[in-house]
Design a protein around this nucleic acid. Structure first.
Lengths: 124, 124
DNA sequence: CATCTGTATCGATGGGCGTCAACATAGACA
DNA sequence: TGTCTATGTTGACGCCCATCGATACAGATG
């Protein structure tokens, strides 16, 4: 339940987050780079997870209570399962405040994935 | 074997390609939008596919012969299988020229996915 | 303490997917 | 025509994963 990343994909580095890989178009990715980056894409490769992620990302302040976003047509355990996956992929962090648990997007991750696809054009 | 998209994700629109969805952070994605966008992320969510895609994207002219990129540690049928998936996802197109088949990235797709993640910051 | 609500975990199940060997197909060339 | 190379397809196998109901855990409140 702590906030420790289970599967850090963009390795946390003291303060910031270091991009795992160069842009896709720069050179062929190595096996290790691909392994790392694919985990992020895979995490967004499920419609329910993508909706949950978008719901958090677009929510006021970039964070949302589970109760705010759990209306995606699947059971509560399934919602919890997907949020865990997104957390393990380093895309979300969670924090319990009283009764509710709030999920928050890791902003630098979005920028890093953008750079992976489009190169430096994707600013932070 | 033709170049017709099996599963167009960013609907082709005459000349260009229309983005399927607004940026993730703009508003919660609808079920249909998520279904569409998740297919693209899913296609990149496998390490072998990601390496193949990166190999094509980073190759001279944005295109590559299968023989140039098939050294990713899996069998030839598996390479063919993954290239087909990438093609079905609208990320690659293919064209046979004589003996060899060339795969080419759909450039606007990269920009569209970038915008999905980072908003308008990701230019073409 | 008991109870209620919100969220996570467990165990099971069904379907999807990555992989391969074997085979099929397409073009080039003799 | 036959053969060789390059690539795609088929069928099977094993594993991962999305989903659920049941249950457990956490915090609030009485």
């Amino acid at each position: 339940m702590s906030n420790a990343k289970v599967l850090p994909l963009l390795e946390p580095d003291g303060q910031g987050i270091v991009p795992c890989c160069p842009p896709l178009t720069e050179r062929p990715m190595t096996a290790n780079e691909a392994e790392t980056a694919a985990r992020m894409f895979k995490a967004l490769g499920d419609p329910v997870r993508l909706r949950l992620f978008s719901a958090v990302a677009s929510h006021e302040g970039g964070e949302a209570c589970v109760c705010d976003i759990s209306d995606v047509g699947v059971s509560q355990p399934t919602v919890s399962h997907h949020l865990k996956k997104l957390k393990e992929a380093g895309l979300l962090t969670s924090e319990r405040r009283g009764t509710w648990v709030y999920y928050r997007v890791e902003p630098s991750v979005l920028a890093a994935m953008g750079r992976l696809l489009t190169g430096p054009a994707a600013a932070a």
